[in-house]
Simulated assay, not measured.
Amino acid sequence: MLHKKTLLCASGALALWFGAVNVAKADVVTSIKPLGFIASAIADGVTDTQVLLPDGASEHDYALRPSDVKRIQDADLVVWVGPEMEAFMQKPVARRAEQNRLALSQLSEVKPLLMKGDHDHDHDHGSDDHHAEKRDGDHHHGENNLHIWLSPEIARLSAVAIHKKLVELMPEKRDELDANLQRFEANLARTDKQVANELSPVKGKGYYVFHDAYGYFEKHYGLTPLGHFTVNPEIQPGAQRLHQIRTQLVEHKAECVFAEPQFRPAVIEAVARGTRVRMGTLDPLGTAVQLGKESYMQFLTGLAGQYTACLKGD
């Protein structure tokens, strides 16, 4: 009889122990890879970070698979920009409790830093572009540019918010999470200075980007874009818009035109053909970077290198 009671007590203790382990394991799921860079730095050594969108997919038009919905349901913390950016996530995220979700664009500290979308100021499209431009604008997630992960300042605020959520979920891990946040902020401050120094020689050099994604990065580091080919990467710019860009390239107002890894439209090559403008590639999602405690720093330095390689003519 005593032996049976001992077994019951032991099995009960094991159940409690496994239950505690499950409570402590708070998987973080982010919508896109750059948010995963920030989250994985804060969660390093504490819990896993996963990214919903596979490399090569666009945050603009992704369709969730049943397995993605399950990952959102099972995650202890879902981190995304917000419903205006990742509309495809709105319904499954809305089913999660407030403590298990974090929309970075809706943080009170981030809202004052949001930039207006450039499409609000693009009045140089011809009438033949009106329909495409309207679809462009409708696509651009309301009035703001929500590519907020390209702002080092907003990245730091995002890290603070992720840290706060994880401490609430895993109070027993506060010391590790505190240390991770402190390391992230110190590394970000150092990397920010390095990137600013690297980009300083190319300030004032004009260029075109393929799509309207880089405003935060460009503003933060004082770069001087001439414009973008499109707001929505899925919609080709109209003929009059291309003629305007071509004219500026011929007049040598631009040093470079930048494509993106997931969007390599022939239209860029066609417009640049016969000019002296150089072609480069910018990767706003960091597809070549692996998640880890230094990944956001690698993302920033990688993007800076992509700018300078083309603008310097290296």
Rank of each mutant, 00 (worst) to 15 (best):
P54L: 04
Q50W: 01
G222M: 12
N144C: 10
L199Y: 15
M115N: 06
L242Q: 05
L2P: 00
V257R: 02
R278K: 10
V79A: 01
D27W: 06
K253R: 04
R264T: 12
H252D: 15
Q194V: 12
A10T: 04
L181W: 00
A196D: 14
V160Y: 01
Y62K: 08
W149E: 00
E133G: 15
G137S: 13
P54F: 06
A39M: 10
A155F: 12
G280M: 05
E172F: 14
L169R: 02
Y221D: 05
E133A: 14
G204M: 14
G117T: 07
V167W: 03
Y216W: 08
S105C: 02
A132L: 01
G305H: 10
V21P: 01
R156V: 15
G36P: 01
R276N: 10
K219Y: 07
A97C: 12
H163Y: 12
Q290K: 15
V110M: 01
L7N: 07
S200F: 09
A94N: 13
E153N: 05
K70H: 10
Q248N: 09
E176Y: 09
F18V: 07
P265D: 02
A41I: 02
S108N: 10
H163N: 10
S67K: 06
Q298I: 09
A26K: 01
F37V: 13
A39S: 12
Y221M: 09
H121A: 07
R246I: 06
A75E: 04
E168V: 14
N100S: 15
S11R: 11
A87Q: 05
F217C: 10
E234L: 14
L104A: 04
A186D: 11
P66C: 08
V160P: 00
L64V: 12
N180G: 06
E260R: 08
L14F: 15
V93L: 07
E109Y: 05
H123T: 03
A266M: 04
P112A: 08
T30W: 04
R246W: 07
I268A: 10
